[in-house]
Simulated scan of single mutants.
Amino acid sequence: MTALRFVALGDSLTEGVGDPARDGWRGWAALLAPGLAEGPVEFTNLAVSGARTRDVLERQLAAGLARRPDVASVVVGVNDTLRRTFDIHAVAARLDRVYGAFAARGTVLLTACLPDPGAMLGLPHALARPLARRQRAVNTVVHALSDRHRAVHLHAGEGAWLRDRALWSADRLHPGERGHRQLALRFHTLLTASGLPTGPAPTPEPGFPAPTKSADLRWLATAGVGWVARRCADLLPQLLALAAEELRHRARGSSALLDLRASAAVSSALAALAVGEPSAAVAIVGAVDEVQAADGVRTGSG
């Protein structure tokens, strides 16, 4: 029986951070994989912690296409919002090329919108609002492009699950095992509802006891501190500038202008893609096919 091929692209969420396994992380994609078919499933996780849309396009996409997946997941974007170089036009263009490359192959594409990191961390209003605005922009783009490329899309950016602490890890940004299982189960439900053949649904019940408070504190005092430091070094200067701008507009009663500016940027980014660039996706797929064909010739001639 031919195995179904599932490739996962993205950042730490898909890498599995928050759901520890014996050899590192497991995560929602690995939990979903066995339920994608009644028979064997070949699962490849290309997601890397800290990845942005540029990393997925330039480093993960070609490797994903080379595996000729039947199913591919692309869940990314939060790290873009946490950088001073955030540009919704660039995010939209990159995601359109990645989604389009898989769609051109007839791959079943899985996407998701994600929670606002500022709200999850409980940041002060002036710091949280700029991040919320950016995440809304990314989610709006992901919604629109998921429709455009007929992806199976999970609305994970809102809902009661965000407020259930039992589903989240110590860092408040990544799901714990229960949260990763919820994501896997919700994707499986969407695939079933779409009429796509699936195997048994992932169980929502954790296989391991929840981390103790002392374990959470140890994580925060070690790996957690490094995680925050790496992002603060890049984002904090601009975030403080964004907060100052937020406070100035709030004092003037003109905060709505910032929302309008962000909405206009999203509309402009999507309008730039409205004509479409199918040739870009086809070019990526074609380049991968040429490399594979050349490798086949070399292998055969050896």
Rank of each mutant, 00 (worst) to 15 (best):
T2F: 13
R5H: 08
V7N: 01
S12H: 08
V17K: 02
G18K: 03
D19Y: 07
D19C: 03
A21D: 12
R22T: 15
R26M: 09
G27N: 11
A29P: 06
A30C: 09
A30E: 11
L32E: 00
A33I: 01
L36H: 02
E38S: 10
V41Q: 03
F43D: 07
F43Q: 11
A47R: 00
V48S: 00
G50K: 11
A51E: 08
R52Y: 07
T53C: 14
T53Y: 10
L57T: 10
L57Y: 02
A63H: 10
R67K: 05
S73V: 00
S73K: 01
V75K: 00
V78Q: 01
N79M: 02
L82S: 03
R84D: 06
R84T: 01
T85G: 08
T85F: 10
T85S: 13
H89A: 14
A90F: 05
V91M: 04
V91S: 09
A92C: 03
A93I: 12
V98H: 01
V98E: 01
A101V: 04
A103M: 03
A103S: 07
T107I: 06
V108I: 12
V108G: 03
L109R: 07
L109P: 05
L109G: 04
L110G: 09
T111F: 05
C113G: 15
D116H: 05
A119W: 08
L121T: 08
A126V: 03
R129N: 07
R129G: 07
R129S: 10
L131E: 00
R134V: 00
R134T: 00
Q135C: 07
R136N: 12
R136M: 08
V142T: 14
A144H: 02
A144W: 00
D147Q: 07
R148Q: 08
A156P: 01
E158C: 10
R165T: 08
L167H: 00
D171C: 13
D171G: 10
D171L: 10
R172W: 01
L173C: 00
P175V: 02
E177N: 01
R181G: 04
R181H: 04
L183K: 00
L183Q: 04
L183D: 01
A184R: 00
F187E: 02
L190A: 06
T198A: 04
P200F: 05
P204Q: 07
G207N: 07
F208L: 14
P209V: 01
P211D: 02
L217E: 15
R218M: 14
L220G: 08
W227S: 12
A233M: 09
P237W: 02
Q238D: 10
Q238N: 11
L240E: 11
L242C: 13
L242W: 14
A243C: 06
E245A: 13
L247F: 02
R248I: 10
H249E: 05
A251G: 11
S254C: 08
S254E: 04
S255G: 10
R261T: 15
V266S: 06
S267T: 15
S268W: 07
A272W: 14
A272G: 15
L273Y: 12
L273H: 12
A274M: 12
G276C: 12
A283W: 03
A283D: 13
I284D: 05
V285D: 06
A287F: 14
A287D: 15
V291P: 09
D295F: 15
D295Y: 15
R298M: 13
G300E: 14
